Computed example of a mutant assay.
Amino acid sequence: MNKFTILIIGLVMVLMAGCSSNNIEIKLTTPKSFTPGQLTPIQVKILDPKGQPVKGAKVSAKLDMQGMSHGDTSLNFQETGNGVYVGKANLEMEGDYTAAIQIDYDGEKSLSEKRFSIVYNQAQ
């Protein structure tokens, strides 16, 4: 391998290590469908590096529809217990979304991106 390739691999490894410094695990749960004009619950479960539920975090997210430029949807989450936080989003379109989830916990901020797909509720 040439020196440039080794340098690039080294930089990628350093960046990966820096991005996972606190090792918080985030699990995103969304419904498979939504009803236009109604708020849709979005849930995250947060676990600490020991696998224990995180309590007392400040959680927010921005939802961005992939491939669209109509802005993003911001939401704040409320803690419901056992490491679970719930927010409600006003989704306008079905499709593929990216949730940029920000967590402020124990003096550290974490940012994680999760993807999900959602369709219109056909049982109206």
Rank of each mutant, 00 (worst) to 15 (best):
N2K: 11
S69L: 11
T73Y: 02
T35L: 08
T40S: 00
K27H: 12
L111G: 05
G83F: 08
V84I: 15
A57K: 03
E108A: 13
I101D: 01
N82H: 14
Q43C: 02
Q122T: 10
L63G: 03
K50M: 09
C19Y: 09
Q102F: 03
I103G: 05
I46D: 00
G95L: 08
F4W: 10
K27D: 11
L15E: 02
A17P: 05
S69A: 14
D106Y: 06
V86R: 01
V119Y: 04
K62C: 04
P36M: 11
I8V: 15
P53Y: 03
N22W: 12
G81R: 06
E25K: 15
P53R: 07
D48M: 08
E25T: 14
P53I: 08
D48G: 10
D104S: 12
F77E: 03
I26M: 13
G67T: 08
P49Y: 10
L15I: 09
Y85W: 06
Y97F: 07
I103E: 04
Y120C: 08
F77P: 01
G67Y: 02
V54Y: 12
Q122K: 15
C19H: 05
L7M: 13
V84T: 14
I9L: 15
V44G: 01
E25V: 15
A99C: 01
Q43W: 05
H70L: 13
K62R: 06
G67F: 06
G81Y: 11
Y97W: 10
L63M: 01
Q66P: 00
T80C: 01
S110K: 06
D72A: 13
V12S: 14
A89N: 01
K109N: 09
L28E: 04
S69C: 00
A57G: 03
D48Q: 08
Q38R: 03
G51D: 15
L63A: 02
G10T: 15
D106T: 04
E94Y: 07
K3D: 14
E108K: 15
A17K: 05
I8E: 13
D104Q: 10
Q38D: 02
I46Y: 01
F116S: 02
Y120A: 00
E94G: 12
E92D: 05
K50T: 12
E113C: 09
T5R: 14
S20E: 12
M13T: 11
P49W: 07
A99V: 02
S117T: 11
N22K: 13
P53S: 05
A123D: 12
V84F: 00
I103D: 03
Q43G: 08
Q38K: 04
S117P: 00
Q52P: 00
E79H: 06
I46W: 04
D104H: 09
C19W: 09
H70W: 14
R115C: 07
K55Y: 11
M13A: 15
K55V: 10
I42L: 03
K45M: 11
S110P: 05
N22M: 08
K114T: 06
M65G: 03
Y105T: 05
D106R: 05
D64A: 04
K32M: 13
C19L: 07
K32G: 12
V59Y: 04
N2Y: 09
M1E: 14
T5L: 15
V119L: 06
Q78D: 14
N121A: 04
N2R: 10
S69H: 12
